[in-house]
Computed example of a mutant assay.
Amino acid sequence: MNRLEGKVAIVTGASANIGGSLAAGLAAAGAKVVCTDMSAEVAAATVNRIEDAGGEAFAVTGDVTDPDHVADVVAQALERWGRIDVLVNNAVWFNQKGLFTMPLEEYRRQIDIILGGAFLFTRAVGQVMIDQQIAGSIINVLSTAAWQGQPGNIGYSTGKSGLINFTRSVAMELAEYGIRVNGFTPTATQPEDPKLVARMAAMTSQPSAYPMDFTAQFPMKRLPTPSDYVPTVVFLASDDSRMITGSNITVDGGATAKYWPWRPQQD
């Protein structure tokens, strides 16, 4: 039996990497999925991936910081399937700049996508769940950068860390309705899409004032792939996690638990 049979999910930022894989994983577990993204091509690709595997999905293109887009996504989900059981707040803008290199407007924009988008979607979906008396699940995608100080990535780290207490606060507000709100923390991720693998290799090979040696610092033998995250998010979306709220599950291969000077993958 599929754990999410009969449930409807919305995934924001349904890209080919983490967001798209989570959307596909929810669909594989039986959910019907609304895939949103700024890029129509990206959202459509994730829908095609789901449909090719026998699932049900449709795409809505738009900006998560636009209240009209949020209302449209919710309205289309209700028109198509009549309910919303799961929300995954994953939309993000990767704009790696530091304190002295990040323009103020870019900083504000990055924070707004991460936190403002989560606020708008959570408020809209939470209201539907309350109105329909659905004990739903809202999952906020965090990052190990939310829990640690990463230099040269000020907007992303600040936005993701803000989601930690956003998760807790909203969980307390919605607890009386049986609606659960939790965080999910991934880490540096090895893409499964060949195009993204090449892009990641190009990014990590660029000179940086703050070089990151993910391989040498990672406790396990490899970085996680997006598929490694799916079981945890499916669990949080399912009724099996019915008494978990205001919490976080980390899938990072031990990255945040590691004592800082130890180099697990030494030559």
Rank of each mutant, 00 (worst) to 15 (best):
V92H: 01
T215H: 12
L4A: 09
P264H: 05
V70G: 05
R3V: 06
A255Y: 08
Q206F: 04
G19C: 10
G254D: 11
G162C: 05
G253I: 08
P186A: 09
W81L: 01
I138T: 01
R199T: 12
T250D: 07
S39Y: 07
T225V: 15
M172R: 15
M243F: 15
N153L: 12
K160S: 01
M38Y: 03
T215L: 13
V181L: 03
Y229D: 01
V88I: 15
D68N: 13
G159W: 02
A75E: 12
L115G: 00
R168V: 13
F218P: 00
Q190N: 12
G13L: 08
K32A: 12
V74K: 02
N153G: 00
F100H: 14
M172K: 14
T65P: 01
A216N: 14
G254A: 11
E105C: 00
A202K: 14
S238V: 06
V34A: 10
I138S: 05
S39K: 07
I130D: 00
T185W: 01
D63W: 09
G55N: 06
F235N: 02
T101G: 14
T185A: 14
T36R: 07
A59P: 05
D52K: 13
F100P: 00
M212I: 15
E79N: 12
D228R: 09
G178Q: 03
Q266F: 11
T158W: 03
V8Y: 04
L196G: 03
T61F: 06
K97C: 00
K160W: 02
A9V: 09
E173G: 05
K195V: 11
M203D: 09
I164G: 00
L104T: 14
L115T: 05
I139H: 04
G6E: 14
V233K: 03
A175Y: 03
M129F: 00
I154Q: 04
D267Q: 13
V88E: 04
L174V: 03
D37P: 04
T245D: 03
I139K: 06
P207R: 05
R83T: 10
M129Q: 04
K97Q: 14
A40D: 14
W93E: 07
L223F: 04
Y259I: 02
Y229V: 03
A31M: 11
G98A: 09
W262E: 13
G149E: 12
L26Y: 11
E79F: 00
V230Q: 04
S241P: 11
I164Q: 10
K221R: 15
H69P: 00
F119A: 08
R109L: 08
L236C: 05
V11H: 05
N95S: 10
A198P: 06
V181G: 03
L26W: 12
A75M: 00
G98Y: 05
A77L: 08
A175V: 14
Q190W: 13
G126M: 03
S161H: 12
